[in-house]
Design a protein around this nucleic acid. Sequence first.
DNA 1: ATGAAAGCGCTAACAA
DNA 2: TTGTTAGCGCTTTCAT
Lengths: 341, 341
Amino acid sequence: MSEADDGGIAPARAVRMKDIAEHLGLSQTTVSHVLTGKHRKFRISPATVERVWRLAEKLGYRANVMARAFRERRSYAVCLAVEDLQNPFWAGIAIGAEREAEEHGYALVVTDLGGSAERQRRALQLVRDQRVDGLIVSPVRGGDSDLATAHRHGLPLVQVDRAVARLPVACVRTDHEAGSVLALRHLLERGRRDVVYVGGPLDIPNYRQRLAGVRKELRRHGLKPADELVLDDSSPAEAEREVARVLRRMRRPFALFTANYALTVGTLRAIRAAGRVVPDDVELVGFDDIPMADLLLYPVTTVAQDVSSIGREAVRLLLDVIRNGKRSAQHVLLPPRLVPR
Amino acid sequence: MSEADDGGIAPARAVRMKDIAEHLGLSQTTVSHVLTGKHRKFRISPATVERVWRLAEKLGYRANVMARAFRERRSYAVCLAVEDLQNPFWAGIAIGAEREAEEHGYALVVTDLGGSAERQRRALQLVRDQRVDGLIVSPVRGGDSDLATAHRHGLPLVQVDRAVARLPVACVRTDHEAGSVLALRHLLERGRRDVVYVGGPLDIPNYRQRLAGVRKELRRHGLKPADELVLDDSSPAEAEREVARVLRRMRRPFALFTANYALTVGTLRAIRAAGRVVPDDVELVGFDDIPMADLLLYPVTTVAQDVSSIGREAVRLLLDVIRNGKRSAQHVLLPPRLVPR
DNA sequence: ATGAAAGCGCTAACAA
DNA sequence: TTGTTAGCGCTTTCAT
């Protein structure tokens, strides 16, 4: 009743190690030793090894991943929890991460946090439940303690893009400060002296570092930012509102430096609404590259991040933690690149 | 030696059903019945049910997903294989799919095929290896027979956006023809009579359907396309090249209708290079919405697809196949939406 | 150089 | 209403 009610063309039952063992008159153990590459360690005779390999090949043996995962308490999957998959920055990281994971035989579970601490908690739950062996996460606001707890419990973690303060967990990210320096150097070279910085809340290290880079490079030239906009939610809408006010105030030519993609978008809208002339009147440089930037109303120079490498490196680090228990908390800083336009 | 060499703060060993059973003097089976919600079916006494629940809660019991997956031959994960995660269209689908999967207790493994049949084969392998219970795929060129074979073997499959011809597998996609009709109606309402269609190879049904919609709506007005560009690889570069030629030829005002995002990008570049005036001189409508379209050099009206719903519906269908063995091959057509600009 | 046996945590057929 | 038992496919001690 319950078995063999195949519709006729049902796929033959999967080949197990046991099947190979029986065919060959060996024990399942020996087959396991061979098929998991431990034949040297167990001094299996070359002849036997060969026979097992051959038959496995012939029968199309594929290890039952679930059985192995269960037994080894490893899922051979890792999770990547990003802030917003629609953002090309995160999509790029996901692609890089997936490639790297695949090359190591790991599957990548991608989840979009959308800034929700609840969703971040669910991602952590995936690890606790052993559905995945580790988590690469871009920490959301208000989820710091959850991450700290998880780390204390020994869950393999790696951060990307941003890091929780004082949490001894590795983080892979762009050197934000260096990015700002690149941007400012560009502006200064083009003779700009008045630079307005547009960024997000300073309790987020990224924004602190980007602002620090701005100040640093200006100071080297004996200058200070003409203004520093520190926005609360750093949404396009808020950026548009606040930059509009700046535009009303600033009558001389000046430059704007926006600290990320969303802020750049809002700023562009404000510039358009104000009808200002770019770049003669205002010039714009923004963190994060923009797809199709050449087709925008205004030229925008960007600080591009090496998204693919961020993803790959994060996976490499995580697998290190998983496999070797390395608990390195070093931050990996990748250099940004200026895309002048 | 092997046990209890916790570093002191090691997380207590996970609670199993067995533990609860022992504490309560019950059998593991009963605990299983309760904890899997089958207590009605097995007529477990309310008192027992309550006791089990209470203790499970108190001990923080969490089912061992791997053990369950192994036993049930189900991973409670599905895979979404998209063409290009960097494309906002696919990112949107991924987000929708992930939300829906999560709501059903499934994890979503996302993979980026990048048009590679080899990578599509690997995605199918994930299903064979039972790492995931099913696959949502946007078929790549040259992978038709792999999909057909997989389907014959009974692997749970759902297609998105495009479908392999004569493959009896459900497909969730936008009603392409309706989308073209929307676009053309828009152009005709604005008095355009000369419309050049820019699309991809006609062996891809999507392009056939989009072209069909164009012809259909024009015919209703006794018109025919001024030209039909059928591009081979439908890359931005090719579109730019070919549209440039059209622009050189067409001197009177006319309209361009591009059949997808990449083609729209290339077309925009050609228009810019030719220095034509939009929309007085050429008007542009494109399939697929464009982020930040309001900030583009030229206004582009788009046919937006309901990406999130495509993702969600695909997951729903796939879970149907997985759970109920439904092998419906019906195509689900979602209506497009015109975003005039 | 190879094998026997135990067991990972869970489900389910069958007993009682 | 609850319990007994077997077993999923694999890895891993420990024998031989």
